[in-house]
Design a protein around this nucleic acid. Structure first.
Lengths: 167, 167
DNA sequence: TTTTATTTTCAAAAAGTTTTGAAAATATAA
DNA sequence: TTATATTTTCAAAACTTTTTGAAAATAAAA
């Protein structure tokens, strides 16, 4: 297997993985493409490598910038914009966790807070509703705390948990 | 707000949340509906509550069974099948983690193993590829270990990590 | 200023996913 | 056995998301 083949395989699989995480294929593939590149790339280079349209490349590149995973760079004497990805994977993961927290955890917590104030009565159904939503709230709150903690920590922290767990 | 309203709100939001996790809306909503119900429900009851077709209800109910989140029950003297959800949320999360591991972690690890045997040369591109894929493999391996560990543990284990982290 | 390069936008097309509903299959009762 | 209840299947329809590509906007050079 040569480099191009290996890159192709990895980029495809990263796209598939993205899809099952609610990230569209092109966005995940652009991310992979920039992650694998030692230098920053122009929109045209990405379009060419992934065989996607300009509009698609532009929109998803900006979505990646919005997620804080990709940055713009201007080269002296060049008109084109260059893009490069955050390479530190711990930072990448923290950034994704932070964005998903904003998009997912906060809305469901809001709904849970809202329904918790409702007057539900003493029926079996009402009791079950209270029990289940309370349980979910509790588990989400714990995860949220974990994410917040991770966001403030370095990668070493993560390794420390692992070693604590096995001892 | 009354019970029906609260249930409706929660079920809708659970559906939205499912979508951004690669689980289709109907599947997530059926899950929510069964989670909230103190008793097991028939296909017709679920169809009626969520206003979805028989085919949709049947297919997604079976997907939930396949994920190990919902079970069938037969009631004596009744022809209809009854369905109920696993209520222990820690078990639910472990089950989801286990399934996603199978569907996501294993395939990407396979690709990483495959490309790691490739002859990539000494170009900057080749070197970057090796570095990035090695980093990803390392971080995925750590997460995978964490998931495996969690799968074998009870909820207390999770609370213990949290307390260890804060001290 | 005008020309040229580059990026952005967005309506329409294409692709992908979910849902429906009715027919087929299966299972139980009579 | 036949009749009835129930579940399953799957092609087609509805819906959603993604992608395209060309036109508009922006920015830099001449």
């Amino acid at each position: 297997m040569d480099l191009d083949e290996a890159k192709y395989k990895f980029i495809q699989e990263w796209g598939v993985l993205g899809s099952s995480w609610g990230i569209n294929r092109a966005m995940a593939q652009i991310h992979a493409c920039l992650l694998l590149s030692p230098d920053s790339k122009t929109t045209d280079e990405v379009m060419d490598e992934l065989k996607i349209s300009r509009g698609n490349a532009n929109m998803n590149m900006r979505a990646l910038i919005d997620w804080g995973l990709v940055f713009k760079e201007f080269k002296p004497g060049e008109r084109k914009e260059y893009f490069y990805a955050e390479k530190d994977l711990w930072t990448v993961m923290k950034q994704i966790a932070k964005e998903r927290r904003k998009r997912e955890i906060i809305p469901i917590k809001d709904v849970l807070a809202e329904v918790s104030t409702a007057e539900l009565g003493d029926s079996a159904e009402g009791k079950e509703f209270k029990k289940v939503t309370k349980d979910i709230d509790s588990i989400i709150t714990k995860f949220d705390g974990l994410i917040e903690m991770a966001s403030k920590s370095d990668q070493n922290w993560f390794l420390k948990i692992l070693s604590k767990l096995v001892k």
